[in-house]
Design a protein around this nucleic acid. Sequence first.
DNA 1: GAAAAAAGGTGACATTTGTCATGATCATTA
DNA 2: TAATGATCATGACAAATGTCACCTTTTTTC
Lengths: 207, 207
Amino acid sequence: MRVLVIDDDALVSSSLKTILEADPDIQVVAIGNNGFDAIELYKSHRPDIILMDIRMDGMTGIEAAEKIIASDPDAKILFLTTFSDDEYIIKALRLGSKGYILKQRFDSIIPSLKTAYLGQNVYGEEIIGKLPSLLKEDDKAGLENYGLTERELETISHVAEGLSNKEISEIMYLSEGTVRNYISTILEKLELRDRTQLAIFYYKKRG
Amino acid sequence: MRVLVIDDDALVSSSLKTILEADPDIQVVAIGNNGFDAIELYKSHRPDIILMDIRMDGMTGIEAAEKIIASDPDAKILFLTTFSDDEYIIKALRLGSKGYILKQRFDSIIPSLKTAYLGQNVYGEEIIGKLPSLLKEDDKAGLENYGLTERELETISHVAEGLSNKEISEIMYLSEGTVRNYISTILEKLELRDRTQLAIFYYKKRG
DNA sequence: GAAAAAAGGTGACATTTGTCATGATCATTA
DNA sequence: TAATGATCATGACAAATGTCACCTTTTTTC
């Protein structure tokens, strides 16, 4: 089994190589440090399976996986991560990638790799346990704890309706400039960048 | 363990009662034939767990489960179905209900019930195996009938992540101008006005 | 009663976004 | 072969957006 290892922590990736190659069935064909490496090395080496970190600088493992799967729908990718990062689990599953395992469980990496190689899906216990809450829409704590004023909350709901500043100003009987100021303040409070991110934030919280 | 059994096939529900009560730990407190029964009998008997068919006349098991969970968020519900009906699996998972098992496997019903009773989630092998493709289909659902190209769909998902044109262009290896053109085309195809409405559209099509 | 918070405003400014015209390449299809 | 559709690109332009500095007036709160 030819494996491609991608991890932005060189210590981790080289440790993985050592661990994996202790098994006679496994050969690490290359090591990369980011999503771009993953794409290039996959093309040039055509490994049987990719073992990749999710959180990386520049391009996340998920994004790299998207591109790789776009070019080769049969690509097998096993994700590694330090903690089970909720927002990524769904994305990883959506990709149809083979499994998602946690970095802590070093002893489970090799068996998981072999299982994935055989075409089976591998999901850690942690993942399965989290599925319902991930899919459930109630992980919305609400917008109430961000120090937002009444008028700001009102403004947010209009942004989430897809209205422009001008339209919002007409509905709320305000000048367009005031609406812009409100949104600017909201963005700062919520640590967001633009109205699109605000709308997304809103829908992730509420639905 | 006090169980409520709901199945619109009287033969099935009475068979289930017989099978379940062969176990000394289990007591079937009531039997219902539809979703309305489920809600009423849950209120009046307060069983530890409900074993319910998904496909039923009038109200599906899913709908009944929604109402029951709305009134008692801790309600434990285990679904039964003749075949693993894709469209319902996601809905059942979203409810956070305890598991989803297949009717054929009579021998697994009792162990599953006991596991669910202990608060663990129970998913049949078939379900786990289908998750990726289910989520994937769920992903494309809704966006498919608008004549969007692959690259356009890819672009949409990035917009829905809250990325700017510049960021999208870097990820997709495109010029910023191309991304703008893509989005412009997408907006026209979907009859939307700006990227915020696009993100909202995206999130309304799924969770 | 003073201070703070909320509500509302203006004008200027840089950036982002969306549109349009126009062109190129490549693969598929009629 | 010709036509189409998907892909990718430019440059120019107008409109929308977000930020900043700086105001006023009420309402709450200390």
